[in-house]
Design a protein around this nucleic acid. Structure first.
Length: 430
RNA sequence: GGAGGGGUUCCCGAGUGGCCAAAGGGAACAGACUGUAAAUCUGUCGGCGAUGCCUUCGGAGGUUCGAAUCCUCCCCCCUCCA
């Protein structure tokens, strides 16, 4: 029978392990406890954190116990790994607030009931450390020579801003985290991004030296899009899991816009659909691939926002871009609605305005600016001049075109900027 | 503390008194082509009810008809020395 490591490997989650065999043996045995650290730098995850989150979810699905560690203590220090600049420091209050937001989102992927998973904050134990005793008990296990040669240090040593002492100590703290969880939770596996390798190994060594214990680690590859970009960034900024920051509709759209070459990979990373089905979808070519993208977008949205919100996003998307029902033999395990009736537009971003304004008419560029389809009026004018602005799918011809009551379509206006960005305008009821 | 180098529009980076809202590249956006993909080509890319006006070149003053460019003070970063 397949153990989690097999599953994770098949799905592409594994970059490196501290010995495939030992990790495999560990994971096919009785339930183990594993952990991944997350930065509490924001109150919401973004798409870039989905890989570790999905990994924890896979762990739990295979009977293991995941721990999500929020780095409340380490955020006060700043991890230099993979960064070329020092990180901003957070106040404990911000960290707590952020941790609450993160837990809420994690709960969609893993169950915290009955201690099946845990969320811990390393501030709890790191803040209690005393400098002298920490140096005596743990500092002596670390070789500075060794630390200096680590990838993350070397990177920073060669930059202009260098590496300050606080950051240099980061690895000790993360190693201590692992040791602490090993002692208190019997946690024997740490996972993390490829840039965490050094930190993870340091923890394993500390456990060996301080406790003569054995622990292991897995790192995930850094996920980039096929065009080499870091995953999860768009022009508008990060794609967040928080519906307040990125609406389910926009979230869905983000996944729909996945590049062809990424679809299969992303299906295995960001959905729980069986790998066998995903492999079948690989044979889809050309525009047929859009069916697979639809499923990807639906499933990814469902995981974060639930079946209903995903369905709303799907129908809104269909109504704007055209209906393309997904054939039932494509990714059959998906709960995507295959046969949609009349479409609802609820999920489209909407602004309500006072109908009085239409009496005299409103310049189109003003509306585009107002609903944030454009960043300024000047930009809206340019958009219109370039033929990229539409009202109810009719291109606006004149740059000073006025929108009035005669433009209403069933009491609504549908603005569109470019090919993909829509915004709906409704009238306030009197 | 001493000596030197540097801070330019989203990013990189040119510009060393008027021709500078500031070259070039990247990113981004729009159009064409497409499949809500990629690539390509074309155009746009500080703000403004706009042949003009306003704000921008680390900050504050000053010289000048005119300053990103010159002077003074301050802040920040880097390198070497102590």
């Amino acid at each position: 029978m397949k153990n989690v490591l097999d599953v994770l490997t098949e799905r592409g989650f594994v970059e490196q392990t501290t010995g495939d065999e030992s990790v495999s043996n560990l994971l096919k045995g009785p339930p183990t406890t594993c952990y991944i650290g997350f930065d509490p730098t924001a109150s919401s995850f973004h798409v870039g954190s989905l890989i570790p989150i999905m990994a924890l979810a896979h762990m739990q699905r295979h009977g293991h116990r995941p721990i999500a560690l929020v780095g409340g203590g380490t955020a006060l220090v700043g991890d230099p790994s993979g960064k070329t600049e020092m990180r901003q420091m957070l106040t404990p209050r911000q960290v707590n607030q952020n941790a609450r937001g993160l837990k809420k989102q994690l709960a969609k992927f893993i169950s915290f009931e009955n201690e099946q998973a845990a969320l811990v904050n390393n501030a709890k134990w790191l803040k209690q450390l005393r400098y002298i005793s920490f140096l005596r008990d743990y500092g002596r296990h670390f070789s500075v020579n060794r630390m200096l040669t680590s990838e993350s240090c070397r990177l920073r040593l060669n930059t202009e801003s260098g590496l300050n002492f606080i950051e240099f100590n980061y690895v000790l703290l993360q190693a201590y985290d692992f040791l602490y969880l090993y002692r208190t939770e019997n946690c024997v596996l740490q996972m993390g991004g490829a840039d965490q390798w050094g930190n993870i190994v340091a923890g394993i060594e500390l456990i060996r030296r301080a406790e003569r214990g054995t622990a292991c680690g897995i790192t995930f590859p850094l996920i980039t899009t096929s065009s080499g970009e870091k995953m999860g960034k768009t022009a508008q900024g990060s794609v967040w899991l928080d519906p307040e920051r990125t609406s389910p509709y926009d979230y869905y759209q983000f996944w729909i816009n996945t590049a062809d070459d990424d679809v299969i990979r992303f299906l295995s990373f960001f959905t729980f659909l069986p790998l066998a089905e995903i492999e079948t979808a690989q044979s889809l070519k050309g525009s047929d691939l859009n069916a697979a993208k639809t499923v990807l977008a639906f499933e990814a949205t469902k995981l974060v926002h639930g079946q209903n919100a995903a369905k709303e996003a799907l129908t809104a998307s269909f109504s704007l871009f055209g209906m393309r029902a997904v054939d039932s033999h494509i990714l059959p395990s998906s709960s995507i609605p295959r046969d949609l009736g009349s479409s609802e537009m609820e999920a489209i971003p909407t602004t309500v305005i006072d109908p009085v304004r239409l009496d005299t008419g409103v310049p189109a560029f003003e509306l585009f600016d107002e609903v944030n389809l454009c960043a300024s009026r000047g930009e809206a004018r340019r958009l219109i001049r370039q033929g990229g602005a539409y009202v109810n799918d009719k291109r606006i011809q004149k740059f000073d075109s006025i929108v009035g009551h005669h433009d209403l379509n069933e009491g609504e206006l549908l603005l569109r900027a470019g090919k993909k960005r829509y915004h709906r305008i409704r009238l306030k009821n009197k």
